[in-house]
Amino acid sequence: VLKALERTRQLDIPDEKTMPVLMKLLEEAGGNWSYIKLDNYTALVDAIYSVED
């Protein structure tokens, strides 16, 4: 979780936006981090930006 938060902080995305999206992605992935961690957490960042749209 810390590495995911560090990555999104680099992009000026607050933890308050990151955590709900991260928890949803983890739930959808059955707790499997490998998809979320791919390409420096690209799936997480993309999911956060899609929620903002």
Rank of each mutant, 00 (worst) to 15 (best):
I36L: 08
I48W: 02
E52G: 12
E28Q: 12
A47G: 05
D46I: 13
L22V: 03
V1K: 05
L5Q: 03
E27H: 12
M23P: 00
I48A: 03
V21R: 03
A47C: 06
A43W: 08
T18I: 06
K17M: 11
P20S: 11
I36M: 04
A29H: 15
V1R: 06
G30S: 09
E28I: 12
Y35I: 12
I36Y: 03
I48P: 00
L5G: 03
I13T: 02
D53V: 14
L5M: 04
E28A: 14
S50F: 11
V21N: 02
Y41K: 00
L2K: 13
E28V: 09
Y35E: 10
K17I: 15
V21E: 02
L5R: 01
V1A: 06
R9V: 03
I36C: 02
S50M: 12
I13Y: 04
W33C: 01
E52L: 13
T42R: 15
I48R: 01
P14R: 06
L38Y: 12
Y49F: 13
K37M: 15
T42S: 15
L2N: 12
E27D: 11
N32I: 08
G30Y: 08
L38W: 11
V51T: 14
L26E: 01
R9C: 06
A47K: 08
P14W: 05
Y35Q: 12
A47Y: 06
K37D: 08
N32L: 07
Q10C: 09
A47S: 07
D12A: 13
G31E: 06
L11P: 01
Y49A: 10
A29Y: 15
A4D: 03
L11N: 04
A29C: 14
M23I: 10
D12G: 15
L38D: 10
G30W: 06
D15W: 05
E27K: 11
V45L: 13
E27P: 00
L22E: 00
L11A: 06
A29E: 08
R7I: 12
K3Q: 15
T8F: 07
Y41R: 00
W33E: 00
W33D: 04
L25Y: 02
Y35G: 11
D12L: 13
M23E: 07
L5F: 05
S34Y: 15
N40G: 07
L38I: 11
P20Y: 12
V1P: 04
D12P: 03
S34P: 04
T18D: 03
A47T: 06
E6M: 12
L22T: 00
A43S: 08
